[in-house]
Design a protein around this nucleic acid. Structure first.
Lengths: 123, 123
DNA sequence: AAACTATGTTGCTATATCGTCATGTAGTGA
DNA sequence: TCACTACATGACGATATAGCAACATAGTTT
């Protein structure tokens, strides 16, 4: 999946950002965190405010173990933060950029699929 | 991976967008298209303008067959468009939203990893 | 301390997907 | 038509990951 290619230094055009392989990998990793419906559903729930894991399990519609793993993915991607409060683990969105990203993607989808609006209830 | 959960219709809070499962799946699919370093590298190359597949193969640093498959992923995600010109297949970014998405993600990373700037040459 | 609740973790299976090799196909030129 | 180029597609192995079940752990309450 990941291979190291001898990378020839390429001249950097004025207005073009050339990203290193390491940077691309980091970026890909972030996008990947947003590439699962369950995680998006959890983030969507968190957009309403802080929630504990049990609430997220309800929102996600999957098992608790699964949610726990998804949480660690989102956490590692720097998208959510957690704090302990007694028995509960409270989760919040730690980076407002998430909102922008989702808004852009949603707008994109809405524009493209306006004719299929029936399948996109809630927009 | 995908399970159909009996979905209770939930009241829709005023300022909160509740996305249907179908919508979330579409959004996740779009983000997933951006979750591979090779695809990001291809998009990065396309940001400089239209390129044919051979040029993208060079830019991506992987095999032609692989690039071809990644291209179809990006195409299906509505991120690039292709047109045939003789033997060549010319590719362009079809949605400027890509730029916004990558800029946001890059800014996010830059902010978080400023201290590791050495690994992020090119920013 | 014992029982209970809320989460995290591990082992497992099923599925998805990357990368590669080989082959197929479309368009070009001799 | 034959060879060549540019690209797409199918088969394959290797790896990653979602989901589930069982268990482990932390904090609370009695």
């Amino acid at each position: 999946m990941k291979q190291v290619i001898p990378k020839k230094d390429q001249a950097k055009p004025a207005n073009t950002k050339q990203l290193s392989d390491a940077a691309l990998e980091l970026i890909a990793h972030r996008f990947r965190a947003l590439s699962e419906p369950v995680r998006l559903k959890m983030l969507s729930a968190l957009m309403q405010g802080e929630k504990n894991v049990t609430q997220l399990v309800e929102a996600a519609g999957t098992g608790q173990a699964n949610v726990s793993k998804h949480l660690s993915v989102l956490k590692q991607a720097g998208m959510i933060a957690t704090r302990r409060d007694g028995l509960a683990t409270l989760c919040t969105i730690s980076d407002p950029a998430i909102f922008q990203l989702c808004e852009i993607m949603c707008a994109k989808l809405k524009a493209e699929h306006d004719e299929r609006a029936k399948h996109l209830a809630g927009f």
